[in-house]
Design a protein around this nucleic acid. Structure first.
Lengths: 181, 181
DNA sequence: TTAAACCATGTAATTAATTACATGGTTTAA
DNA sequence: TTAAACCATGTAATTAATTACATGGTTTAA
C-alpha cells in the first residue's frame, strides 16, 4: 500500500506554474531562481523527475519541440486532472507555519555576551547580504510590475514579491537596530 | 573517500546547546520546540543518531544517570574537540541567505486576481495563525527575559527571540494591509 | 487509583533534497 | 572565430529529514 506522499508541495508548485502557461523543465527551474525561490527551493535534479512522475499520473502532458537545428525541448502543460488537483490544493487550508532555516540567526544564539567581538562583524556581514537582496527584489518589482495593469493580471505574484521586499526591509532594520553606530 | 558532509548544521546546533550545559537528547528535542525551532527544525529521530555520531567522532561524551527507580538518561557534554569545532563554526562567515518554505505564500502566487473569492479567507486564516504565534513568542519573552540581567546573560538568545517577534509582527501587519476592512 | 501527560531513547522505512556526474545545443559578445 | 554564457535534459550517489514503529518509566491531576 503506497503512502499518501509526504506533503510533497513541489508537485503543486509545478502544476501552478504550468497552469500559467506551458513550460519546459528549464523554465520551471528558472522560476525557482526568481520569486518562487523566495518561498520555496528546488533544483533541476528534483524538477525533472517530478515532471515524469506527474506525467505518469496523468496530471501533465508534454509536446516535443525543437529550437534551431536540433535542440530538443519538452513543453509541459496541465491536463484537466492536473488542473483539478491544483485547484483543490489552493483551496484547502494551510495550517502550517513558515519553516525557516537561518544559519546566521542560529549562530547568534550561541553568542552569550553583547561584548563578544564577533557580534558586530556578524551583524555587518548579514546587513550587507540582506541589503543586496533587498535591492535585487526592488529592482525585480519595477521590471515585473511597471504599472497597475501588470499588478491586476498577476495579483498573487505581486503580493508575494511585496511580502519578500517587506521581509528584507524589516530584516535590515532589525540588524541596524543592533549595529553599533 | 568520504564526502565532506553536506553542510550538516544540526551537529553545530547540538554542540552549541551542549556548550550551554550538559543535556539529554530529550532536552535538546525540547529546545527545537522552543526558540531554536523558530530558525531550525529537527525531530528526536534525527537528534539521537546525531548524538551517537558526535560521540563516535570524539566531540561529545555522555554520563549515564538514573531518575527515580530506573529511568535511564544520558547526559551529554562537550569535549575540548567539540568546543573547538563549535567556536570555528560560529566564527566563520555565513554567506547563505535564509531558506524559507512557506506554503501559504506559494498558494498566493497562484491567485491571479484580487477578486478571487479564496483570497480573503486565506488571508484571514493566516492572520489568525500568525497572531497566535506572535502572542506565544511575546509570552516567552516575558518569562525567559524578565529583567536586564537575564538579557545580559544570554544576549544572543535574546536577539533571536526579538527577531522572531519582529518577524511575526511584520507578517501580521503585512496580512492586515491586504485584508478587506 | 488510574488515566493522561510527560519523560526518555531508540530504530526502520520512506521520502525529500542536494551535489555530482553526464552530455550536448545555441547565442552573444569580445 | 571562438570562448563564455546560456539553454536543455537527464541520472547516480549521497545526505537530510520526516513519519512510523517500538518500548518503557515518572509525574500530576482528576
Amino acid at each position: 500500500m503506497a503512502a499518501i506522499g509526504q506533503r510533497n508541495r513541489l508537485q503543486y508548485i509545478i502544476l501552478g506554474l504550468l497552469n500559467q502557461r506551458p513550460q519546459t523543465g528549464y523554465d520551471l527551474t528558472k522560476a525557482f531562481e526568481n520569486e518562487i525561490g523566495e518561498f520555496w527551493q528546488a533544483k533541476h535534479s528534483q524538477i525533472y523527475p517530478m515532471l515524469k512522475r506527474l506525467e505518469a499520473a496523468g496530471e501533465i502532458t508534454h509536446e516535443d519541440t525543437v529550437t534551431g537545428e536540433k535542440l530538443a525541448k519538452k513543453q509541459y502543460s496541465l491536463t484537466p486532472a492536473g488542473h483539478e488537483k491544483l485547484v483543490a490544493w489552493v483551496t484547502e487550508p494551510s495550517p502550517e507555519l513558515t519553516a525557516i532555516k537561518d544559519e546566521f540567526i542560529l549562530k547568534l544564539y550561541f553568542i552569550k555576551s553583547i561584548a563578544d567581538p564577533r557580534l558586530q562583524p556578524m551583524l555587518q556581514e548579514q546587513a550587507g547580504l540582506h541589503r543586496a537582496q533587498l535591492a535585487h527584489l526592488r529592482q525585480r518589482q519595477t521590471t515585473v510590475f511597471p504599472n497597475q495593469a501588470a499588478i491586476d493580471q498577476a495579483y498573487g505574484h505581486y503580493l508575494i514579491l511585496d511580502h519578500a521586499i517587506e521581509r528584507e526591509e524589516h530584516y535590515v532594520d532589525w540588524l541596524e537596530k543592533y549595529l553599533a553606530h
